[in-house]
Design a protein around this nucleic acid. Structure first.
Length: 908
RNA sequence: GGGCGAUUAGCUCAGUUGGUUAGAGCACUACCUUCACACGGUAGGGGUCUUGGGUUCGAAUCCCGAAUCGCCCACCA
């Protein structure tokens, strides 16, 4: 016998290992139609959060559904090596022992990170199993594993050979704490309350000096970053600015240094902002860098990698950190009479997305990928419809970004990651700054050596003469290859041939640019085909106040805690039900009660079926039954099931996960539990109705399985709907009954409407009972002026009396001719007019008042409907069905009014 | 500054190409411990669909303007 209560924990602990062990998640390439998805690899340092839970629930729903549809399904899992994040974790651990990574040396440190990965890297992988993910763990990958590394190297070399990877002097975002360059999108801009210092730069050759008043002629420069002053190599004005036109071409004295620097004119300068004069510091500001390039200005780098001032900043400031130096320079400017005044200003300051340090713009040599040539075909693939965004509006955002794309800085000054496969001549390295640097890009050091020998004509070179580039590649440089590197590329594997391109990519909106766009480019460039057919974008999980969930805010919900409180199925179903692809999802704990309650409901319904069986009811063979053997309620149930199967399948095809979840919920709860199970309790032929119930319940379980894998598997086994060594997850996803079955059982639309109408009558009677406060225990006498003739294919209402009797808690149900004028109180339904004899149970005055209100309300509807139908334009233009419906409704309301007026007189 | 989106019941959201008296879940009210289930059942209350115009026989839905909120990109020296 089934337990009184569903034990979710036990079911989860039992089924997941069995599925995995039996290879239920695994398929080999070859047969059938492929359906493949690669998981967005979580950081190996990560722990499972609600964002993962949502993302993976959506994927698992799609994957389980496709698998049940019979597709050859692959959902490929893995983790990302997450350069900075992982290195930080290990460095933090080292710090506890008072060590820095430099103390270990590169090789030992990297080995230490690997060791960390082996010990703790499995955390999130373990947690993902708790969700019930049907990922093929036999194909699990890591972005830094051997295969992925080979792909990365090959790609780097190919792009280099194609001229799409280059090394350049460039101003990059630099995190002084992490000691590495950051890509533009790794910088977070945040509002900052800062100052605007107004500084006077004396103009050379003015009359000022002669009069003995040094600074009468000066230009006023406003800056938020006085500490970069020693790096200034010009001041700039707008060419159209008449105020300063006379200054262009002259020079000014850079305060504190005595250096003369030119005044240049450049469109970049905004006349309206500040004083209209900008100091230009090419080595420490991206815009200034560009201005400097245009005017051939010197680039003076005055800072070290950890944002301290170097010798070029001047002896006095050398060694100071940038903020100390700012204070010192401001003080000196003031002392020298150069500082005019200070204003408060609100601006935006960039912070490192990892450690939150204020980012510095820094001039350095970095590797870049030329993006324009890669972006163009990636845009074309979406424009042509070859790749589709779901929802479609993301394509606009994608175009917008791709069309304004900038080169991608891919080098990172870290130790943990894919080392850049570029080598230099050791002898050349120190003196290379001045001249051309010789670089050999190759897949191996040996190959690089060959290149070096050829280039230098020196056959005596050995590996010892070569030095590999110390930098590693941006983490995304491996993830952008994920859809094919994980399938074995660059080898020509069967997996690659069969599962590439993948079918769906499911991810949140926040990594469309980081990841999705780049995968598109890589897929097209290296495989000749976009990496997926559909890009499904879902929202971000937010807390009840709409804030992003984050560790620092402390507002995160832990999926594992939700699983332990409510079950994995509850987590999954609730997420599916409340998630729209259209917008972000607000989540709080109470939402998960929906899923838990649903699981309980299913368990109890299953228990009911078991009890019927245990009570000795033997289900008939459904396939042998004809329409005549089935009651209208039985047939209605079968038809509702048929509709549910079709609708849910269609919704999933359109990625309408929320709608599908709601439909399966409604089918189970309303159709099966609220109506049919109630009917079965008192059905005239239990053997038949149990057969129907078992069949629709079985189908409902399968419809639900992608959403709630554990409870469906457990219940299917409890009811022996699958064999002992079998699993529901490999059974077919129901698509509805065949036309033959539908014909044999008389599953017609008319019949469906007929039973719906009957239910309206039952509901109306219940409402009457409630309105007139008839005690639930009271058996009442009901009369119905049955009128189902208006419904096509209607069976005789006579046969419905027994089922209505029970549902209405009626002592008797009497049918009279349709249209018969029944005494009050009664309600009009499609089935007919329902009358309940009250036997003087009513407070007359109160009822009279209520009825008057009701008449007034209906009068409003009638008036509106009459006006509508009197309108020729409406009658002529609206679809006939709409007009007919309006007429029918109007008549019904008129009839209702007549009845109500009679009733009012009765109570007067 | 550029782009995208949102505003519907107390709350979270549906509402598919314009078409009955705008729906669901939660919350709320009343009644019900009826032998699958109180994590339940039955019946209810609650919305001038942010706002002002326009198109239309008809607008939550389409167009224009306003307000409020959110996100993304770029960024002021």
């Amino acid at each position: 016998m089934m337990e009184k209560q569903y034990n979710a924990k036990a079911a989860e602990a039992k089924w997941y290992p069995l599925w995995e062990k039996n290879g239920c998640f695994h398929r080999e390439p070859g047969e059938g139609t492929p359906y493949s998805v690669v998981i967005p690899p979580p950081n190996v340092t990560g722990i499972l959060h609600m964002g993962h839970a949502l993302n993976q629930t959506i994927q698992d729903i799609l994957v389980r559904w496709r698998r049940m549809q019979g597709r050859n399904t692959l959902w490929l899992p893995g983790t990302d090596h997450a350069g900075i994040a992982t290195q930080n974790v290990v460095e933090k651990a080292l710090k506890k022992d008072g060590k820095r990574r430099q103390d270990l040396g590169r090789e030992a440190f990297v080995e230490r990170v690997w060791e960390w990965k082996r010990r703790y890297g499995g955390t999130i992988v373990h947690q993902q199993r708790m969700l019930g993910n049907s990922t093929d763990w036999r194909r699990e990958r890591f972005t830094l594993d051997e295969g992925c590394s080979r792909a990365v190297t090959k790609v780097f070399k190919q792009l280099f050979d194609e001229g799409l990877v280059y090394k350049g002097n460039y101003i990059v975002n630099w995190c002084p704490r992490c000691g590495t360059a950051l890509a533009n999108d790794e910088v977070e801009h945040e509002p900052n309350h800062g100052h605007f210092w107004y500084v006077k730069y004396p103009v050379v050759g003015s009359s000022a000096g002669q009069s003995g008043e040094p600074y009468r002629d000066y230009v006023m420069v406003a800056t938020t970053r006085p500490e970069t002053l020693p790096g200034d190599t010009a001041v700039a004005v707008n060419p159209k600015d008449d105020r300063y036109a006379h200054l262009v071409g002259k020079t000014v004295i850079l305060p504190l240094t005595g250096r003369e620097i030119p005044v240049v004119s450049d469109d970049y300068v905004d006349r309206e902002f500040g004083t209209g004069i900008v100091k230009i510091t090419p080595a420490h500001d991206p815009n200034d860098f560009l201005v400097g390039k245009r005017h051939g200005l010197e680039e003076i780098n005055i800072m070290t990698g950890d944002a301290r001032m170097n010798a070029l900043a001047g002896a006095k400031y050398e060694g100071m950190d940038r903020w100390t130096c700012r204070d010192a320079i401001v003080a000196d400017l003031e002392a020298g009479g150069y500082l005019d005044h200070v204003e408060d200003i609100d601006n935006q300051v960039g912070h490192c997305y990892r450690c939150h340090e204020v980012v510095e713009s820094r001039l350095s040599k970095q590797w870049f990928v030329r993006m324009k040539p890669l972006a163009e075909p990636a845009v074309a693939a979406v424009k042509s419809g070859e790749v589709r965004f779901v929802p479609d509006r993301w394509s606009k955002i994608y175009y917008n970004w791709m069309e304004n794309i900038q080169d991608w800085c891919i080098s990172r000054q870290l130790w943990w990651g894919h080392r850049i496969p570029a080598w230099y001549l050791a002898s050349q390295e120190s003196g290379a700054a001045a001249g051309e640097e010789r670089v050999f890009v190759a897949e191996t050091a040996q190959e690089a050596l060959g290149q070096a020998k050829k280039a230098t004509g020196n056959d005596g070179l050995t590996l010892a003469d070569l030095v590999q580039d110390p930098d590693v590649l941006d983490t995304w440089f491996s993830s952008w290859l994920w859809p094919f590197s994980t399938l074995g590329w660059p080898e020509k594997t069967d997996d690659l041939a069969f599962y590439y391109p993948t079918t769906d990519l499911v991810t949140a909106q926040d990594i469309i640019f980081f990841w999705v766009a780049r995968m598109m480019m890589a897929g097209i460039h290296f495989m000749g085909k976009p990496p997926f057919a559909n890009i499904v974008i879902h929202g971000i999980v937010r807390d009840a106040q709409g804030r992003k969930m984050s560790k620092s805010l402390g507002n995160s919900l832990d999926p594992l805690e939700i699983i332990s409180m409510y079950s994995a199925d509850a987590l999954r179903f609730s997420l599916a039900l409340i998630t729209s692809l259209e917008c972000d999802t607000k989540v709080d704990k109470s939402k998960f009660e929906i899923g838990r309650n649903f699981a309980t409901k299913i368990w109890n319904a299953a228990k009911f079926i078991e009890m019927q069986t245990a009570a000795g009811v033997t289900p008939a063979a459904l396939g042998d039954l004809s329409a005549a053997a089935l009651s209208t309620d039985d047939r209605h149930m079968l038809l509702a099931c048929d509709k549910a199967c079709r609708r849910i399948g269609e919704m999933l095809e359109n990625y309408r996960i929320q709608d599908a979840a709601l439909a399966v919920y409604d089918f189970f709860w309303t159709q099966i539990c609220d109506w049919y199970v109630e009917y079965v309790k008192d059905s005239p032929d239990k053997s038949v109705s149990l057969a129907v119930l078992r069949d629709v319940f079985d189908k409902a379980l399968r419809l639900l399985h992608p959403f709630m894998p554990f409870v469906t598997e457990e219940v299917a086994h409890q009811l022996r709907l699958v064999g002992e060594n079998d699993t529901i997850m490999l059974r077919s996803f129901p698509t509805g009954y065949s036309p033959e079955e539908a014909a044999k059982w008389g599953l017609t639309e008319g019949l469906y409407e007929f039973v719906n109408a009957k239910r309206e009558a039952v509901t109306a009677l219940r409402a009457l009972r409630a309105e007139y406060k008839v005690p639930p225990s009271a058996r009442v006498d009901v009369t119905i002026a049955a009128a189902p003739a208006g419904i096509p294919d209607s069976p005789s209402p006579e046969g419905e009396i027994p089922s209505m009797k029970r549902a209405m808690r009626a002592e008797s149900v009497k049918l009279v001719a349709a249209g018969a004028d029944l005494p009050m109180p009664s309600k009009i339904t499609r089935f007919g007019t329902v009358y309940l004899s009250l036997e003087g149970l009513v407070d007359k005055a109160a009822e009279a008042k209520r009825i008057a209100g009701e008449i007034a309300r209906i009068a409003g509807f009638i008036k509106a409907a009459e006006a509508k139908l009197a309108n020729r334009a409406f009658v002529d233009h609206a679809p006939p069905a709409v007009v007919d419906e309006a007429r029918r409704k109007l008549n019904e309301n008129r009839e209702k009014t007549v009845q109500l007026e009679k009733l009012a007189r009765l109570f007067a």
